[in-house]
Design a binder for these strands. Structure first.
Length: 239
DNA sequence: GCGACAG
DNA sequence: ATCTTGTCGC
């Protein structure tokens, strides 16, 4: 159990609400409504100073298996090297329900996060940030709960609509819902399906896209997420 | 009622 | 996410 509330969200919600993961979908939705009000979509640090970026990915053993595996790692943006990586396993009970992904993967993601000894300046999470029905995708939930800057990097769309994205790397178009911009559809590689990037917490819409693009070299996914995915996949299929 | 639907 | 081989292209 945690006992180190540091900001407004922790002060008003308390560790009980923040680290609670209901089994009941109805309760999960109510909790999202309660937490979403604390998401911050403004930059909380100089982009220039962001050097260590964290990445987390979850994998499952078998088809309907309940065993989940997760890798959390910290990638150095300047050297392009992974400075630390940890692996954890845990049974996963909550089912996959569009809109409630965090209640399935956040528990094990936090378990992996806690195992790290180093601290990242920012986190990139597979899935949506505020580009979510209640503006609390897994990346936003992660950010508020841990009080850390986070960005949602989804490989496909959950909600929102957008115009076609130019086919060249670096191009992007806003992702919107009812006129409100909730993220960006970013082309991280020419002629390759774009990514759906949205702020998770303490990062703006513009910087979210800029940072993800800054972490992409020759692959579709940004390095932190790509490397984490590569590691869990290797781990899960070897055991 | 009928589709859509992160991982 | 997961079940799966080869294959087309830069």
């Amino acid at each position: 159990m945690r006992d180190d509330p540091k900001d407004i969200s922790h002060f008003y919600l308390g560790v009980k609400d923040l680290f609670e993961f209901p089994r009941d979908p109805k309760e999960a939705i109510e909790l999202q409504k309660k937490i979403c009000g604390f998401v911050i979509t403004e930059d909380y640090c100089n982009i220039e100073k962001i050097r260590l970026i964290g990445g987390i990915d979850v994998a499952y053993k078998g088809r309907g298996a309940k065993e989940g595996c997760a890798v959390a790692l910290i990638w150095d943006r300047l050297t392009g090297e992974t400075v630390e990586a940890v692996y954890v396993e845990e049974s996963i009970n909550f089912p996959y329900i569009p809109g409630l992904l965090s209640f399935r993967e956040l528990p094990i993601a936090i378990k992996a996060f806690d195992k790290l000894s180093l601290k990242a300046d920012l986190w990139m999470i597979d899935g949506a940030g505020i580009a979510h029905p209640r503006r609390l995708g897994i990346a936003a939930h992660f950010g508020v709960v841990l009080d850390l800057p986070a960005i949602g990097v989804a490989k496909s769309r959950l909600i929102g609509s957008h115009l076609p994205v130019p086919r060249t790397k670096g191009s992007w178009v806003p992702l919107r819902q009812n006129g409100e911009v909730i993220g960006h559809v970013l082309r991280t590689r020419s002629d390759v399906r774009p990514l759906y990037v949205s702020p998770g917490h303490k990062v703006s819409l513009l910087q979210s896209a800029n940072l993800v693009l800054a972490c992409c070299s020759r692959y579709r996914l940004p390095e932190p997420t790509r490397l984490a995915h590569q590691l869990v996949t290797a781990k899960v299929r070897s055991n």
